[in-house]
Amino acid sequence: MATEVGPGSWYAGLQKASFNPPNWVFPVAWNLLYATIALAGWLIWKRGERKALHWWAAQLVFNLAWSWIFFRGHAAVWALAEMLVLWLLIATTVAKFWRIDTRAGALLLPYLAWVTFAITLNGAIVALN
């Protein structure tokens, strides 16, 4: 798995920000976020808005790509750059979904907030290492 982090791994050896959450927080947060991402996509799909779902799919691809760039590629700088694009894709998806169904747009706001926080964490890793 791309995000697998174990003792002695590259990630464990990195200097992290003092506000970096413990490792157990990440799977909990992502499971909740993926549920809201899926529900938002389903609400838009149910309305037949396929064009908006292209943005939804694109942000999912970038979401997955970050894990590979960061954890497999050990490329924190590139991962940070990729995450900035991810943030723009999510923000665009929020805006498009909001116009179609405000519930779907609102469901993506915690995801946008988490990725904003993740940009800060990734930026701290770049600065500290």
Rank of each mutant, 00 (worst) to 15 (best):
I100W: 08
L88G: 13
T116V: 11
I100D: 10
R47F: 03
V85D: 14
T93P: 02
A57M: 14
V85N: 09
A127E: 02
S67A: 07
L88D: 07
W87P: 02
L108Y: 13
W45V: 12
T93Y: 03
M83N: 10
F70T: 03
W45F: 15
F26E: 00
W66M: 09
A17G: 01
I37D: 08
L89P: 07
N129P: 01
T3E: 10
I119K: 08
T93C: 11
W56K: 01
P22G: 07
V115W: 15
L89K: 04
T93I: 04
L39G: 06
N31W: 00
K96T: 13
G8N: 01
A124Q: 02
L14I: 01
N122T: 11
G41V: 05
L128S: 08
L86H: 03
W45D: 13
A17D: 02
W98Y: 15
N63V: 09
L14P: 00
T3H: 06
L33Y: 11
R50Q: 12
W114V: 06
T3A: 05
W114T: 06
P7S: 00
L107M: 04
T93K: 03
G8T: 01
V85M: 12
L39A: 14
A12F: 03
L107I: 05
R47T: 12
G13N: 02
A76L: 11
L109F: 08
W98G: 04
F62C: 07
P22T: 04
L64V: 14
K96C: 10
E82R: 01
F26W: 09
V28L: 14
P27A: 10
A29C: 14
A38G: 13
R103Q: 12
N31I: 04
G8R: 00
F70Q: 01
N63H: 10
W45C: 12
R103P: 01
P110F: 13
I37Q: 05
N122Q: 05
N20Q: 13
A79C: 04
F19A: 11
G73I: 12
G41N: 08
T36I: 07
G41R: 05
D101S: 07
A124D: 00
W30C: 12
K16R: 14
I69Y: 04
